[in-house]
Amino acid sequence: MDKTAALAALAALGQDTRLEIFRLLVRAGADGIPAGEIATRLGTVQNTTSTHLKTLGHAGLVRAERDGRTIRYFADMMGFRDLLAFLMEDCCNGAPELCQPAIEAITCGC
């Protein structure tokens, strides 16, 4: 991930509703959530939720899959891992083994 992509991801997560959407999708895991259900769960308007999902998608944090007539959204964990890797790239003044506990804590099998 480059600096421009990292800034886009951080900006996307820097808005309250988008952060809530991303966290909701992380909790949903591999099942994902249909767009309408995301809006219902968060108490937001569907077209506004769609705009937020598009922003998160452009930032590489959310992906969409068609499921019949429904679009199901998922947290893009590879995009999130890339963001975390970028942020921790130069950690610990050249001694990355010092960051290993933090890296292990954020690594999941998803």
Rank of each mutant, 00 (worst) to 15 (best):
M78E: 08
I103D: 12
I21W: 03
L98Y: 07
G109V: 14
L42I: 15
R18E: 14
R18N: 09
L87H: 15
G36P: 01
A30E: 15
G109C: 03
I106G: 01
Q100F: 13
A9N: 13
A75W: 11
A8M: 13
C108G: 15
G60M: 10
R63G: 07
L83N: 11
L61Q: 01
E104F: 12
T40R: 14
E20Y: 00
G68E: 10
L13R: 08
P34C: 00
G68H: 05
R69A: 03
E104C: 01
G14L: 03
R18Q: 13
A28Q: 06
L87F: 05
A8I: 06
A39S: 08
A28W: 00
G32L: 00
I33L: 11
I71A: 07
K3R: 12
A9S: 10
A8W: 03
G29I: 05
M78C: 10
M77S: 08
L61S: 05
T48G: 14
A35T: 00
M88S: 11
A35E: 09
V45M: 09
V26H: 03
H58V: 07
A102T: 10
M78K: 12
A35Y: 02
R81K: 08
G14T: 02
E20F: 01
V26D: 07
R27P: 03
R27S: 12
A35W: 03
M88W: 13
R23D: 11
L19P: 02
A9R: 03
A64I: 00
T17L: 15
K54S: 11
I106V: 12
L87Y: 04
E89L: 15
A11G: 09
F22G: 02
M88T: 14
A9T: 01
Q15S: 08
L10Y: 00
T17W: 07
A6G: 00
T48Y: 02
C99G: 00
A39Q: 06
T44G: 09
